[in-house]
Design a protein around this nucleic acid. Structure first.
Lengths: 304, 304
DNA sequence: CAATCTTTTTTGTCTAGGACAATACAAATG
DNA sequence: CATTTGTATTGTCCTAGACAAAAAAGATTG
């Protein structure tokens, strides 16, 4: 079986995560990749091309731009992958506890990792766990990812186990039925759910009624749900990957559609420093600010 | 603001599992769907078109052919969906317990819903819960979704609370460290994680070491992780929205890259009836088949 | 000098129709 | 009735042009 003629474009899309359109337009613009063609004129990518594409994809994720990378030789790419993009940031005040967790991620020790997470949670309680463990770890993992020290699978593994831990903890609280009623979700295009989970983890111990809708709820559905569900607050989360522009647009649009009485909270790196453009929306400046926002709400509604 | 102009073609691809190329060629050939265009000439699909496309996709999966379906009215499609193919579907033995849960979803009663789910879980145990509660509920919600009885937010709410329940239950099992070691994930393009969670919920009570990587792990990373993680089995999940062709291609490619000794399991509606094309891959025919596959593995490796 | 606003460049995704292989269906044969 | 052969259907790939969204570079301000 002359199996190695090469991969077709669909296979390369799967393997590299680069869309067919992107692969074709790169070929047109930069002359790379330049796959062979089969008898029908369809592209056949060699495995060395695919390897190089994987490198390039990786570097793109680290913030490099296609135009710069496309001319580079294999060696140059390899060198970029090694080199420390942001050498600083290393010597953070990283407690031994956190380091241990981070090491378990790097070693793919899922059982130990789960154990350490649960242990840290038990020791400190949910809110403290989120604020003192989850936040710095996320930060560290994010940095590692950008720098290429963290593999895709390591990031996935961490997210998955952390979700298990947080959801289990949240689920363990009996419903208390105190106000406010808070709906948590993200706008379409935002795929990260950890922010929501962290916010929920801060609120639930305060007796707040949280209803999380998970990610990617269209604005019109948020409006519908907020009105029919008797909510006091709609809380949205925006990761750094979400463009600030889209976030602001979405929030403004949603604010204008929601009744005055329903507060709109927005948190996460995607809306940091946008408070001035968002009158009528409470920007949550950091995870601990969640509780502050809650206190404020309760203070103003004390007479209800 | 006209926020509801419609969905663009990429969003419809995500929602329905029909590729952009397919959507365009249907429009050209059959005149359906015929989306509006924005100021730039780009397609804007109305939500009723997307609903109809979902129906059509579902019927395609049941073996109908596009040419026949494309002319049909909404009513005719609805009738086909009810009738023979999945006849049982409607008048299913839907116990009062399941109906109660379904009703709570429709009423958006999240606290009660959470309570009912936990209660059902406690009563029946994890495996039985998945097989006798989660599966039929998913089915029911899925049908309702296709037919437009279920709102976006209701589906989100259900998924979210179910995830909480399942993850909490999974997390509660102490690691037993028995073989096999199973890695669970999905290929890029598959965004549904419930299937993974259900599989994990079936395996963990058997003492299996499960490591879930969540969704969308590129094939090359799966290979890497499987080799370095000392796994015995790689298990993938494919929802109905995932095209069977892509699933088969991905599985074949992955199979050829993994060492013989690592088994490859694939489950979910996206790979139903594909066993003949997938020598070397164990198709999981239904959630209960997960445990069967496990038994087989243990039977053959009894001497290790 | 830092921070904001504006212009230019880069980059990904969309568009249109044409082409063809792979599959499914129909007809004809043994 | 089972198998082969012919025909219709259907999804994916192709080219090449267009344009918005994002990033970088430049200009302006406090």
């Amino acid at each position: 079986m002359a199996d190695f003629a090469g991969l077709n474009i669909a296979a390369v899309e799967r393997d590299t995560g680069l869309s067919k359109d992107t692969l074709r337009v790169w070929e047109r613009r930069y002359g790379f990749p330049k796959p062979l063609r089969d008898s029908l004129g369809e592209r056949l990518y060699s495995s060395s091309e695919v390897d190089k594409l994987r490198c390039i994809k990786r570097l793109l994720d680290q913030g490099y731009r296609p135009g710069k990378l496309m001319g580079a030789s294999d060696d140059e790419l390899a060198r970029l992958l090694e080199s420390p993009a942001g050498a600083a940031a290393e010597s953070r005040d990283f407690s031994p506890e956190l380091s241990a967790i981070f090491d378990m991620v790097k070693l793919h020790r899922s059982d130990e990792l789960r154990g350490l997470l649960t242990q840290a949670l038990m020791k400190q309680g949910l809110q403290q766990f989120v604020s003192a463990v989850v936040v710095p770890l996320n930060q560290r993992i994010g940095e590692g990812w950008v720098r290429g020290e963290i593999e895709v699978m390591e990031e996935h593994l961490y997210t998955e186990l952390l979700q298990n831990t947080l959801r289990a903890a949240i689920n363990a609280y009996p419903p208390q039925g105190k106000r406010p009623r808070v709906m948590l979700t993200t706008l379409s295009g935002e795929e990260h759910s950890l922010g929501l989970l962290m916010a929920e983890a801060m609120l639930v111990p305060e007796g707040v009624q949280c209803v999380s809708l998970g990610i990617q709820t269209p604005i019109s559905d948020i409006e519908l749900a907020a009105r029919s569900g008797n909510f006091d607050v709609v809380a949205l989360s925006f990761s750094a990957a979400y463009s600030a522009r889209r976030a602001v647009e979405g929030l403004v649009s949603l604010r204008s559609r929601l009744p005055e009485a329903i507060e709109l909270w927005a948190g996460g790196a995607g809306v940091r420093d946008q408070q001035r453009r968002l009158a009528g929306t409470r920007i949550i400046g950091g995870i601990d600010d969640t509780v502050a926002a809650l206190r404020e709400w309760r203070a103003t509604r004390i007479n209800d």
